[in-house]
Design a protein around this nucleic acid. Structure first.
Lengths: 330, 330
DNA sequence: TTGAAAGCGCTAACAA
DNA sequence: TTGTTAGCGCTTTCAA
């Protein structure tokens, strides 16, 4: 049995109300009693029970994070930002890994509601209709990071269309005209459709004719990067530069090319997307579209906690230039 | 204001006690009332308040994880295992990132105590004396993962000495005799001293004379891998094979060698440690000492929740053979 | 400046 | 089979 406020009160010869006041910096006691009580608190090693407090205040000082995965660098970086800001604001963070399972997503929403978390951050998840319904039901503030939805949920992300347009244009400016793309999961409304659109528009604006052979779809993973690099090379053998919709896939492509003895960037240039730690550690170091992942994580806590922060934030991207893209001339 | 057990009771014309019984699968009600109550629960969309429950039961169904970092693959993998098993056991997990800051570690211990978590998992942290004192104070079950201490705290880890011995011996068996090591942080009692010892013993048993030039100390990071590879090449230019105390450092070494135009494994063989996703994605794919990180994470939940599980678990390691070590002959 | 007491949402005796 | 009631550890009126 641990020490309670009652024990402190008794020991200090005051009422629990007074102890509570002192604990919460409320007015209503003399310096003398304050000192006495604080001394007792120290002696007894008393720590308030946040569970009891939560019951009264309807605040648990914890926020839940729902995300597909914790063991990849993309999610890890955002999570690090969230944790950092939460710590600074005196909040704890609870992680809920879904493995992309919609049932589990909804189950976790339930749990977070039962635990009465003060807010929920959802990273990289698709907001299905039943998921949204569940979100609506529980009436806990939600913010989306690196994803968005058709529903009125605030989100924080990069402009995928523009980022993709810029990456492609970067390749064009380097003199490439035979450009391919390894896109993400086909049909993905968040991370594939806008990026493919950006790719096509950039080609179009550069007077390069787009054909279906120039694009292939993976699932953002390293393995799919390997496979789709192989496929792209078959469908579009003249390609000199490739835009990959994730660093993971870019590194997969790098691996495949290495195995085939095709030099990067000498024979083929590669640009990735995300700028996770993978990119700088790649051989050669990967040029990629950088998203400020950690900042976005931090911002999500702000958005949740501070109602004065404006809703829906588009974060800036930029090209992190490293060694996988070279200037090209015929 | 959300729906409480009282609302359900009123609506169903029973007492809160009966509702509570039904909620908790305790005996003491007719089928008829059960049905009625369950119907009301559904209609009202009632979800029990775990905070209130926690106050009575002294159980919060959540466990805390204290770890240096969430954005690296090593921690991420263990964390994934923890989360997976916690979810299966109906627990939630709270993450506490310390950035290796001892003050923050202790602060977090406080917070976890205030929140009355049911157990605490500590990953890869050094257990300093004041940290241990704090652990002792709060009387919450603790288990250590990938670390250990002089104190009576159960731990789950690999045998670092043996793993290192085996890695070195693997190199010896491949025909190498000029073997170097890029060790972790000098003086690190958990991950450096035993590994260096294993390295030296293995050399000794292979009748290879150890000299100080054969070893250099980094800090487990990619950057330090680059730096120490450079240093090692200066202090021990004849080296043909190198054991790195982390995959990150191994990949750093790979990068450095790539830049210098030194081929791996043709000129120099490399073996890493951890077998994180980094290893398989390296160019060339990295041979490394594999730790079952996810399993260790899962096991830590078992150890915490199931008192029948025996204390102090040494997990098996093995060599994951990939492409960075070649057979050597003069 | 202080204390008594009600109550947050729930569980668990105890009674009926 | 069911209800009444006393808390769990705290905050917050209200009164003194």
């Amino acid at each position: 049995m641990s020490i309670t406020i009652k024990d402190v009160a008794k020991q200090a010869n005051v009422s629990v109300a007074t102890v509570s006041r002192i604990l919460n910096n409320l007015p209503g006691y003399s310096n003398e009693t304050q000192e006495r009580v604080e001394k007792v608190i120290k002696e007894l090693g008393y720590q308030p029970n946040e569970v009891a407090r939560g019951l009264i205040n309807r605040k648990t000082k914890t926020i839940g994070v729902i995300l597909p995965n914790v063991s990849d660098l993309f999610a890890g970086e955002i999570l690090a930002g969230i944790e950092e800001q939460a710590y600074a604001s005196n909040y704890s963070v609870m992680i809920c890994k879904t493995n992309y399972d919609n049932k589990r997503k909804i189950k976790y929403l339930q749990t977070l509601y039962e635990k009465r978390v003060d807010g929920i951050i959802i990273i990289s998840e698709r907001i299905t209709q039943d998921f949204y319904k569940a979100i609506e039901m529980i009436k806990i503030p939600v913010v989306l990071v690196a994803t968005q939805s058709d529903y009125p949920l605030p989100f924080i992300k990069v402009n995928d269309y523009q980022a993709s347009y810029d990456a492609t244009t970067y390749l064009v400016k380097k003199g490439h005209s035979r450009i391919g793309m390894i896109a993400g999961s086909e049909g993905d409304i968040i991370s594939t459709i806008p990026r493919v659109k950006g790719f096509r528009e950039a080609l179009n604006d550069a007077k390069i004719t787009f054909t279906n052979e120039m694009i292939t779809y993976g699932d953002f993973s390293f393995e799919s990067g390997i496979d789709e690099m192989n496929n792209l090379l078959k469908s579009y053998p003249e390609v000199t530069a490739i835009f990959c919709a994730s660093d993971e896939m870019a590194v997969g492509a790098l691996s495949f090319l290495y195995k085939k003895g095709i030099k990067v960037p000498d024979s083929i240039s590669i640009i990735g997307y995300d700028n996770t730690a993978t990119a700088e550690r790649a051989i050669p170091p990967l040029t990629t579209v950088a998203q400020p992942l950690k900042e976005m994580g931090k911002a999500s806590i702000h958005l949740l906690l501070d109602s004065s922060v404006k809703i829906d934030q588009i974060y800036p991207h930029h090209i992190a230039e490293r060694d996988t893209v070279r200037s090209y001339s015929e």
